[in-house]
Design a protein around this nucleic acid. Sequence first.
DNA 1: CACTTGACCTGTCCGC
DNA 2: TGCGGACAGGTCAAGT
Length: 325
Amino acid sequence: MPELPEVETIRLGLRGKIVGLKIKDIQVFNPKSFIGSPKNLRGQKILKIWRRAKILGMELGMSIADPAGSQPHPTSSLVTTSLRAVDGAPRSPSPALTLLFHLKMSGQLVFVQRQESRVQSPANRFIGGHPTEDMMGELPNKSTRVIFEFSDGSKLYFNDQRKFGWIRLISKFEIRNSKFFSQLGPEPLEKDFTWQVLKNNLLKHKSMPVKVAIMDQSAVSGVGNIYANEACFDAKIDPRMKVGSMDDNQFKRLHKGIIKCLKDGIKYGGSSKVHFVNPEGKKGYFLDYAYVYWKEGERCKICGAEIKKMKLGGRGTYYCPKCQK
DNA sequence: CACTTGACCTGTCCGC
DNA sequence: TGCGGACAGGTCAAGT
């Protein structure tokens, strides 16, 4: 599910709520959803929350004055093995830890204040002109895989119907050295993401349909199926077009289209086809403003032609046959 | 080597 | 009403 705009929406929503909170307890209902040793979390404070591609990170720390911090650091195989791997590296008694979240297809992160009722709250907030809509029922529900409880009594629910998502507790060191992070392509909303960078990275896959290529996270990070469809439409490029036969103008339009669609995604609070909700349990409205994704059989908002669907690289692909050539 | 398929899971929808 | 199959926004490994 969540692509860059959805993960960013979660980051923005959680930022003001959980930074500074101390983790009191954690419940793991599905072991595969949490990698690492959950008990290492007790007493850790959330210092910072960041996003890279579709990954959300929470930096943790113990305050010196905190009695919990003076407890022996429980052994985490993940943490200790990698620290030992560096010869001569001083072994910190309590390495700085980070929680990573990948929501994959159906993950949700919902924050609930202490004793806050989960009944429908008044629709008094607006995103993109919409009253926000509460999508959550009671929590926990049958998709709840992990619950974080903070010392002020508030809770963070990790719900994930399909169980593809994961939470991983690792050291900062491992992040810096992980193959996963080093292979990620540029952040599309940073200024070093130029059209030439996009072109060079995509040209690794000359014979690939462009829509499939921009979902390669090493070419540009954070674009998934929804925004790949919309970016091709915005750029007026047939999603089947081979990367190798694109000219510079098309790369420039595609570059612009990717950025525009991702920014719109964030502006409208993400896409909620089925699962996505923000940390308040409310849906996002990007799909109300989308041109092709999930619009098969509808009229193109630009030219009136019928939006078509096909399969490309195994994924549902939507396009306007008249606008995109 | 480039690209596709299958696997990981649960739930929904559609046709018979 | 029930059953089988296709499909769903991500990513990795295995296969062609």
